[in-house]
């Protein structure tokens, strides 16, 4: 689980071009959207593709993403439970 969290942080920084952010600055329970990391709806769509590509989890409704991407903690738990690869 800890490995997965680190992997997610690294991927998010790279995927979303968060140049000025370091891995250790993202806390597991930090909110990724809004006041936390400041991600927005376009980032959510990027993350949906990441779920599909890296973990074989396919979402059809972007609204589902909102809950899953709340924090690294929640994301990692969701991936662990639903991943197909």
């Amino acid at each position: 689980m800890e490995d997965l969290k680190l992997e997610l942080k690294n991927n998010i920084i790279e995927l979303l071009n968060l140049e000025d952010v370091n891995v250790d600055e993202i806390k597991d329970d930090d909110s990724l959207f809004g006041d936390g990391l400041g991600l927005d709806s376009i980032d959510a769509l990027e993350l949906i593709v990441m779920l599909d590509k890296d973990y074989g989890i396919r979402l059809t409704d972007p609204k589902e993403g909102k809950k899953i991407f709340e924090s690294i903690e929640i994301m990692a738990a969701y991936i662990t439970e639903h991943r197909t690869k």
């Binding site: 995927l15 376009i42 769509l45 990027e46 593709v49 599909d52 590509k53």
Partner: peptide, 9 residues
């Protein structure tokens, strides 16, 4: 497959 929106937008 596996296309992301940013470049399109």
């Amino acid at each position: 497959q596996f296309l992301t929106p940013t470049a399109f937008i």
